[in-house]
């Protein structure tokens, strides 16, 4: 019975589970960006949205039975020192797809810089308005509001 359940999960849920979760996380982030009132909460929503995209890309690059995209020491030695053709030593399915990893690696670092810039702007907003709540800021900006 247990084996049956595991087989069912492996056949029907596992192949798509990463994609479902990526959609769910992305929608959590989008909902937070639309409806949350606090600017820091909006930024957390933005970061969740961003990690959802990265999750999607990294999930694409996975292969069954694959390891990390770094050659083993033995393989590297065989190709570089002994001069074997790389096609004989390397099988493509043995390594995860490195291209999505590269694209996402830079995206993470750029993401933290833009997060820092957004935090800087929200600090300036707090300096001018004394609050981080969106509706209070809009109240103060409206002609005839407080201030």
């Amino acid at each position: 019975m247990e084996l049956l359940a595991a087989g069912f999960i492996e056949d029907n849920i596992v192949p798509k589970f990463n994609y479902w979760i990526y959609v769910i996380l992305m929608m959590i982030g989008l909902y937070a960006m639309i409806t949350k009132n606090n600017l820091i909460k909006k930024l957390i929503g933005m970061a969740v949205f961003q990690t959802a995209i990265i999750l999607f890309y990294v999930s694409i690059g996975v292969k069954e039975e694959s390891g990390i995209p770094i050659l083993g020491h033995g393989q590297h030695h065989e190709i570089v020192e002994e001069g074997k053709p790389s096609g004989e030593v390397i099988t493509k399915d043995e390594f995860a797809n490195p291209l999505p990893h590269v694209l996402m690696l830079t995206a993470i670092v750029v993401g933290v810089s833009t997060l820092g810039l957004a935090l800087a702007i929200s600090q300036r907003i707090h300096g001018s308005f004394g609050t981080l709540e969106e509706d209070e800021i809009l109240d103060q900006l409206r002609p005839g509001g407080h201030d």
């Binding site: 690059g61 990390i68 770094i70 995860a96 999505p100 990893h101 690696l105 670092v109």
Partner: peptide, 9 residues
């Protein structure tokens, strides 16, 4: 998932 560089970053 085998993305060690991304995990490190």
């Amino acid at each position: 998932m085998g993305a060690v560089d991304v995990a490190f970053t």
